[in-house]
Nucleic acid binder design. Structure first.
Lengths: 338, 338
DNA sequence: GTGAAAGCGCTAACAG
DNA sequence: CTGTTAGCGCTTTCAC
């Protein structure tokens, strides 16, 4: 009732395990006679032999697997990213998913494991530098979304500041002056950066930053709706006429909550966000948002990692992916003051 | 520049590798003197030693990892499922994601790999029996969503037929008689079963099945919108006044396409689906759908697998998760015939 | 308390 | 062409 091993196959085919190894790995070309090859293959088949990846990996030092570290797979942004990674990786590598949200778990056990696991490569959503330090420093690492400050690993991200600038300018052009911000409570720089880029632009043009209460919410519809419900009075009191959310899913919650509170969008409040999920064109009103293709991000990052793992050096800097503003129905000029 | 091994630590701490092993695994209780323990711990720290999981696993036979096989991680249904699995698994197991859509790739390489990888357990979205046969038959397996016909593995799923029946009856009660169906093109039984359950009920009550063209589309908004656009005439010609979709995301596409084609929902066409994703309450009109909590499914399946892996026998049959109809705004009585 | 030694199952030189 | 042998790095009896 045990696993069948190469030794079993060897015994049955009257050869050595070395020969079995050569054959099952397709390295038998011109080194093994067709006769023995067939005998071995037959034995493999009859016994249902599969090479033990653990033993092979121990012997060869390769792992045929890469780890992907993301904070929250339920967010479509990250699941699209994962899809992109998986698609590019193809069948040659096993994808090990590590869900680690640094804000909620500063020392994710998963991270320590992946270095013990000796994966061939790591893709990590904008990890903090002290997380990177806990890696072994030898495994190829590609950082997603944002460079880790003070650490230069290869990374692929979006031209975030362009998108953020476009969004702020759009709001300013419409006549908004007091803009509120609903942030994500997830501790990854992606979200920090979204805010920071907009804040920079806002200050550069108006001399002040975001207006009203500083609110963070989980990146899901219900949490964002609750947060909006709790803080809408505060924002309104501060004169906020436009609210930017860190993620589309949050904007959905805001839209729902605003409808329930009787706050007209975009009449009384303009709403905008980041991601441009497929659903964003469908909500009503359709959401003005900065498009970030997470799928492309994952796809490209995986491609880069593939190169690194095969020892190819990076050919120059990796171009940033576009972050373009999609203007739709949730933004409009503010109501003239009464 | 090599990885530091237990031997390095042993040398530095003047002990044997056996002692190192005992200590780093916390099995030193009363078997190692505090003095040597501290020496070893210090050496571990200075050298940055981490046990090599591959070698450990080869020696112990355990893997501390489970594989999750799903057809499409970009579909929120499966990403929520994954989230549920990951949450329940916790830090003790590494999650290996295998994306394998049997319809598009009948012999996914990923599947063969996981048996070679010797994972401790497998969670698989309703696998076909010949896929199960390619597993090693020894690794604990929990089937998600639908039992594999003619194979009894532990499985956890929804009371689909109840939800399907409720939906059909709802439509019938409203006065619909000709009901169309937009199916998923993904080859997993989850989707097949959704259709089959409804078809059963429909035939039982009306004597006929679904009406109009047999259409399948990818489970994403755009693909479903296209499919609807291409086939709306066919459905209408067949007298269809209600359309059921295999998944909420498809219904979103249908809603969008219907709006563009000028088909009023629910005035001219009622629309319903399965999943009840968080967005479904937000589209307009809000979607009537059968709620299936993929998160709970993943969570419970992972719990079951955990038990199996620890050698606990299943305590009786696993109860099905509820599949309850959520009636919202996309279903209404058909327009009276002119 | 601690160490020596025998595997875990496979790969890769090196002989023959 | 094929077999022998020496690891890969760790765990785990079993002596000392």
């Amino acid at each position: 009732m045990k696993r069948t091993t190469a030794a079993d196959v060897a015994r049955r085919a009257q050869v050595s395990t070395a020969t079995v190894s050569l054959i099952v790995n397709g390295k038998a070309e011109g080194r093994v006679s067709p006769g023995t090859r067939d005998r071995v293959l037959a034995a493999v088949d009859e016994l249902g032999y599969r090479v033990d990846a653990v033993a092979r990996d121990l012997a060869t030092g390769r792992r045929h697997s890469v780890a992907l570290v993301v904070p929250d797979i339920a967010n479509p942004y990250f699941s699209h990213l994962t899809q992109g990674v998986a698609g590019r990786l193809g069948g040659g590598y096993q994808l090990c998913l590590v869900i680690a949200d640094p804000a909620h778990d500063p020392r994710p056990a998963g991270l320590d494991r992946i270095v013990g696991e000796r994966v061939d490569g790591i893709l990590a959503e904008a990890p903090a530098v002290d997380l990177i330090r806990r890696l072994d420093g030898r495994t190829p690492l590609v950082v997603l979304d944002r460079p880790s400050p003070g650490w230069d690993s290869p990374y692929v991200g979006f031209a975030l500041s362009e998108g953020a600038t476009a969004l702020i300018d759009h709001l300013l052009d419409l006549g908004h002056d007091q803009i509120g911000y609903l942030d994500a409570d997830i501790g990854v720089p992606t979200f920090k950066a979204r805010r920071a880029c907009m804040d920079d632009r806002l200050r550069a043009v108006t001399g002040h930053g975001f207006t009203g209460p500083d609110v963070q919410a989980r990146t899901d519809i219900d949490a964002a709706a609750e947060a909006f419900t709790a803080h809408w009075d505060g924002w309104r009191a501060a004169g906020v006429t436009a609210l930017v959310c860190a993620a589309d899913v949050q904007a959905y919650g805001v839209l729902r909550a605003a409808a329930r509170l009787g706050a007209a969008v975009p009449g009384e409040l303009s709403v905008a966000a980041f991601d441009d999920l497929p659903f964003s064109a469908l909500v009503s009103p359709p959401l003005t948002t900065v498009k970030l293709s997470a799928f492309d991000l994952g796809h490209r990052a995986a491609g880069l990692l593939l190169g690194l793992m095969e020892g190819r050096p990076l050919d120059g800097a990796v171009p940033l992916l576009p972050a373009s503003l999609q203007v739709r129905g949730t933004t409009a000029p503010p109501k003239p003051a009464r």
